[in-house]
Design a protein around this nucleic acid. Structure first.
Lengths: 218, 218
DNA sequence: TAATAAGTTTAGATTAGTCTAAACTTTTGT
DNA sequence: ACAAAAGTTTAGACTAATCTAAACTTATTA
């Protein structure tokens, strides 16, 4: 059984690896974990010993199959809990991260599979990031800004970029939620505002707003 | 901020204190915590230092106001999560304790207050134990076995004693849930079975079963 | 009431995770 | 290419929580 700390290191290594796969080094991990490089060295030696990471002195690290599996499981749990917090408990999109950081370490496979079912098998978390399935597969979709959707195209809301309270209120009052299907009716070249349709109701949306909504193509 | 271990010690001390207020001693705590008496001594010295418990060498311990407040908060969280697991995720009544033991340590006041609202302010957990309110007040009700309810009286199901899968299935198939209102129609002296009414439907119930259902008077 | 049993505390050790300071390796830039 | 800078590891120390073994205190009971 891994400790929360070990799980967090694996998650950090995974997430650094996504953008910089060739240089997951002590310093970057230390920054992500808000700790000192020497502490990181201690921990990566321990994780290498347990075969969750590949490690050669001075050469940085990468996850083994086992290590990657665990990292992805944690991410899956994190994102499912975020959906729960937003969709069921009505937290705002920007309030959930910290709580999900705690909930992601709860150990129970049954819990996660029942939670997933309860949430109706969501495919994205409230920030538009994909939720890995129980086998660790991640459906990599294109996360597009609404502003760059073609006229006359349908798309589905999968998340928000920025989540100020006023922005969330705007979405609320126009019945735009995660999973809403929108259609772009027309775009105004002058100010980049757009006319969209949601539930057969037309709404005019400023460029400010359309740049903050992540959607995916239908 | 208390560690999970510290929280668990306070919870253990609280729960031992309920049945044996005069003798919350090292041995009993060690048994409850599944640890050694010497470890308990170390911890109670630390908790006494932090003023969560009253402690005099060789004399046992008792909770301070502060200590009791925290213990009750943990119990509140534990029981709310149990309701969530049973009512929303459809776990059986006997599967939830272990998971709630983990969830009770999640730190977020907002989370608990939103969870409570989401669950519709339940007053009892699935075992019939009362859920403390946000100020730590516990509504002590009488937890009666259905078997001892008077004929012609109404009562509300607040929990189960034993929860074998076959028993839970019986409840399920007769639409008996937490909060169900039952009326005792008649009792059979011969085998102590009883006839009850649930949703205007009469059900015959063996003594086996009526001894396993906790109810409270309406 | 004194010996024994039961229970408690202390002393010293261990493990996980962290830190600082020093030593070491790799990279960079003239 | 080699000195300086940047990055990494090691050594030794610290805290939290635990343990065993020994010392100590309280309770029991013959």
């Amino acid at each position: 059984m891994l400790s929360q700390t070990e799980e967090n290191y694996l998650k950090a290594i995974y997430s650094i690896g996504l953008s910089k796969p060739k240089s997951v080094n002590t310093t970057l991990i230390a920054k992500k974990m808000e700790t000192k490089p020497s502490s990181v060295t201690d921990m990566i030696q321990k994780l290498a010993e347990k075969e969750f990471i590949h490690y050669e002195k001075y050469k940085g690290v990468s996850l083994t199959q086992q290590g990657k599996k665990i990292a992805v499981e944690i991410i899956r749990k994190h994102r499912l809990w975020e959906v729960f917090l937003v969709n069921k408990l009505h937290f705002n999109w920007d309030e959930v991260h910290e709580i999900a950081e705690q909930l992601e370490h709860i150990k129970s496979d049954a819990l996660i599979s029942k939670l997933e079912e309860f949430l109706d098998f969501p495919k994205h978390d409230p920030h538009g990031d994909p939720i890995p399935d129980e086998n660790g597969n991640i459906a990599h979709h294109k996360k597009i800004m609404l502003s760059s959707v073609e006229t006359n195209t349908h798309c589905i809301v999968i998340g928000v970029k920025d989540s100020s309270s006023s922005f969330l209120k705007f979405l609320d009052s126009n019945n735009i939620q995660l999973g809403s299907t929108l259609k772009v009716i027309s775009k105004e070249e002058f100010d980049n505002s757009m006319l969209i349709e949601n539930n057969n109701i037309s709404i005019s949306i400023s460029n400010q707003i359309s740049k903050n909504l992540f959607v995916k193509n239908l």
